[in-house]
Amino acid sequence: MDVNLASWLVIAVALAAANLPFLTEKVFGLVPLKASGIDGTRTKPAWVRVFELLVLYFVVGAVAYVFESRIGNVFTQVKEFYMITVPLFVTLAFPGFVIRYLRKRRH
Protein backbone atom coordinates (compact mmCIF):
# COMPACT_ATOMS: atom_id res chain seq x y z
CA MET A 1 0.00 0.00 0.00
CA ASP A 2 1.20 3.47 -0.84
CA VAL A 3 2.22 5.72 2.07
CA ASN A 4 0.01 8.54 0.83
CA LEU A 5 -3.04 6.29 0.54
CA ALA A 6 -2.45 4.77 3.98
CA SER A 7 -2.15 8.23 5.54
CA TRP A 8 -5.41 9.46 4.06
CA LEU A 9 -7.14 6.22 4.96
CA VAL A 10 -6.10 6.57 8.62
CA ILE A 11 -7.34 10.17 8.65
CA ALA A 12 -10.70 9.11 7.16
CA VAL A 13 -11.06 6.26 9.67
CA ALA A 14 -10.16 8.63 12.52
CA LEU A 15 -12.73 11.19 11.36
CA ALA A 16 -15.47 8.57 11.16
CA ALA A 17 -14.54 6.96 14.49
CA ALA A 18 -14.30 10.28 16.32
CA ASN A 19 -17.82 11.28 15.27
CA LEU A 20 -19.47 7.90 15.79
CA PRO A 21 -20.25 8.36 19.52
CA PHE A 22 -22.14 11.57 18.81
CA LEU A 23 -24.09 10.49 15.74
CA THR A 24 -25.84 7.41 17.13
CA GLU A 25 -27.54 6.43 20.36
CA LYS A 26 -26.18 2.88 20.15
CA VAL A 27 -22.94 2.01 21.92
CA PHE A 28 -20.21 1.74 19.25
CA GLY A 29 -23.00 1.99 16.68
CA LEU A 30 -24.03 -1.61 17.39
CA VAL A 31 -25.42 -2.17 20.91
CA PRO A 32 -28.72 -0.48 21.77
CA LEU A 33 -29.20 0.84 25.28
CA LYS A 34 -32.11 0.03 27.57
CA ALA A 35 -34.92 2.54 27.55
CA SER A 36 -34.41 5.08 30.31
CA GLY A 37 -36.62 7.88 31.46
CA ILE A 38 -40.36 8.24 31.77
CA ASP A 39 -41.05 8.58 28.08
CA GLY A 40 -38.95 5.51 27.19
CA THR A 41 -36.26 7.37 25.26
CA ARG A 42 -32.85 5.86 24.76
CA THR A 43 -30.16 8.48 25.24
CA LYS A 44 -26.54 7.75 25.95
CA PRO A 45 -25.03 9.42 29.00
CA ALA A 46 -22.05 11.69 28.39
CA TRP A 47 -19.63 9.33 30.18
CA VAL A 48 -20.55 6.55 27.71
CA ARG A 49 -19.74 8.87 24.80
CA VAL A 50 -16.37 9.76 26.35
CA PHE A 51 -15.60 6.08 26.99
CA GLU A 52 -16.48 5.28 23.36
CA LEU A 53 -14.24 8.10 22.19
CA LEU A 54 -11.36 6.71 24.25
CA VAL A 55 -11.81 3.15 22.98
CA LEU A 56 -12.14 4.30 19.38
CA TYR A 57 -8.94 6.35 19.77
CA PHE A 58 -7.05 3.15 20.55
CA VAL A 59 -8.80 1.29 17.71
CA VAL A 60 -7.69 3.96 15.24
CA GLY A 61 -4.20 3.78 16.74
CA ALA A 62 -4.15 0.03 16.15
CA VAL A 63 -5.27 0.51 12.54
CA ALA A 64 -2.53 3.10 12.03
CA TYR A 65 0.03 0.77 13.62
CA VAL A 66 -0.95 -2.05 11.23
CA PHE A 67 -0.65 0.24 8.21
CA GLU A 68 2.70 1.55 9.40
CA SER A 69 4.06 -1.94 9.99
CA ARG A 70 3.04 -3.04 6.49
CA ILE A 71 4.73 -0.04 4.90
CA GLY A 72 8.06 -0.32 6.70
CA ASN A 73 9.68 0.18 10.06
CA VAL A 74 7.43 1.13 12.95
CA PHE A 75 8.55 4.24 14.83
CA THR A 76 8.62 4.25 18.61
CA GLN A 77 5.87 6.38 20.13
CA VAL A 78 6.80 8.53 23.08
CA LYS A 79 4.84 10.87 25.33
CA GLU A 80 4.82 13.70 22.78
CA PHE A 81 3.08 11.49 20.21
CA TYR A 82 0.13 10.94 22.52
CA MET A 83 0.14 14.59 23.62
CA ILE A 84 -0.52 15.51 19.98
CA THR A 85 -2.81 12.72 18.79
CA VAL A 86 -5.32 12.79 21.67
CA PRO A 87 -6.25 16.49 21.15
CA LEU A 88 -6.23 15.90 17.37
CA PHE A 89 -8.72 13.03 17.77
CA VAL A 90 -10.93 15.17 20.01
CA THR A 91 -10.75 17.99 17.44
CA LEU A 92 -11.88 15.56 14.73
CA ALA A 93 -14.92 14.80 16.92
CA PHE A 94 -16.05 18.43 16.89
CA PRO A 95 -18.56 18.13 13.98
CA GLY A 96 -20.39 15.30 15.75
CA PHE A 97 -20.38 17.25 19.02
CA VAL A 98 -21.87 20.28 17.28
CA ILE A 99 -24.58 18.19 15.64
CA ARG A 100 -25.46 16.46 18.92
CA TYR A 101 -25.30 19.32 21.43
CA LEU A 102 -25.08 22.75 19.79
CA ARG A 103 -27.46 22.55 16.84
CA LYS A 104 -30.89 24.09 17.36
CA ARG A 105 -33.67 21.56 17.21
CA ARG A 106 -37.12 22.48 15.96
CA HIS A 107 -39.94 20.81 17.85
Rank of each mutant, 00 (worst) to 15 (best):
A17D: 10
P87V: 12
L9E: 04
Y65K: 05
A35N: 13
E80V: 08
A18D: 03
V74P: 00
Y82H: 12
Y57S: 01
L33G: 15
A64I: 07
L54Q: 06
G72F: 07
Y101L: 03
I71T: 10
L20W: 06
L15H: 01
D39M: 14
A6H: 04
M1Y: 04
I84Y: 08
I84A: 06
Y82S: 05
P21R: 12
V63H: 11
D39N: 15
F94A: 15
L23A: 14
V66I: 15
K104D: 10
L33F: 10
W47D: 02
I71M: 08
Y82P: 01
P95R: 02
E68G: 04
A64K: 13
F94K: 02
I99R: 02
D2I: 08
V60F: 06
G61Q: 10
V13M: 08
T24L: 08
F89H: 05
V48F: 09
A14T: 02
F75D: 12
Y57M: 11
Y57V: 02
V90I: 15
V60A: 06
P45I: 15
L30D: 03
T91Q: 04
I71F: 03
V50C: 10
V86N: 02
V13R: 02
A6L: 14
A17H: 03
E52F: 09
A62F: 12
N4C: 07
V86F: 12
A12F: 12
V10W: 07
A6C: 09
S36N: 13
F51Q: 10
K44V: 08
F28E: 04
I99T: 03
V86C: 02
F75Y: 06
R106S: 08
V60H: 01
V13Q: 01
W47I: 08
G96F: 09
S7T: 14
